[in-house]
Simulated assay, not measured.
Amino acid sequence: MSLPKINVKEVDEMLEKAKNMKPEDLLFKYKGILYPSLHSQPENIDAIESFEAREDDLLLVAYPKCGYNWMIQVLNKLAFSAGKLKNPKYIPYLEFTNPEKLKLLSTLPSTRILGTHMNTNNIPVSFFEKKSKILVVLRNPKDTAVSYFHFYNKNPALPAFDSWDKFFSQYMSGEVMWGSYFDHAVLWEKYIDSENVKIVTYEDLKANLTEEIKEIAKYFNYTLSDEQIQTIAEESTFDAMKEKSQETYGSFGKVIFRKGGVGDWKNHFSDEQSKEVDARFEQCLAGTKIGAKLKYEVHCK
Rank of each mutant, 00 (worst) to 15 (best):
D25R: 11
L26Y: 09
L26M: 15
L27E: 06
F28L: 00
K29Y: 10
K29L: 01
Y30G: 04
Y30D: 15
K31C: 13
G32D: 06
I33Q: 07
I33V: 09
I33E: 02
L34S: 06
Y35D: 02
P36I: 05
P36T: 02
H39G: 09
H39K: 15
H39F: 12
H39T: 12
S40Y: 01
Q41V: 02
Q41I: 12
Q41R: 14
P42N: 08
P42I: 06
P42M: 06
E43A: 05
N44I: 13
N44A: 03
I45W: 02
D46G: 10
D46F: 10
A47E: 13
I48V: 10
I48E: 07
E49T: 13
E49M: 08
E49G: 13
S50I: 13
E52I: 04
A53I: 00
A53N: 00
A53D: 03
R54F: 07
E55N: 08
D56G: 02
D56L: 06
D57V: 03
D57F: 01
D57R: 02
L58F: 14
L59G: 08
L59I: 07
L59P: 04
L60M: 09
L60W: 10
A62F: 09
Y63Q: 05
Y63V: 03
Y63R: 07
Y63I: 09
K65G: 10
G67T: 12
W70Y: 12
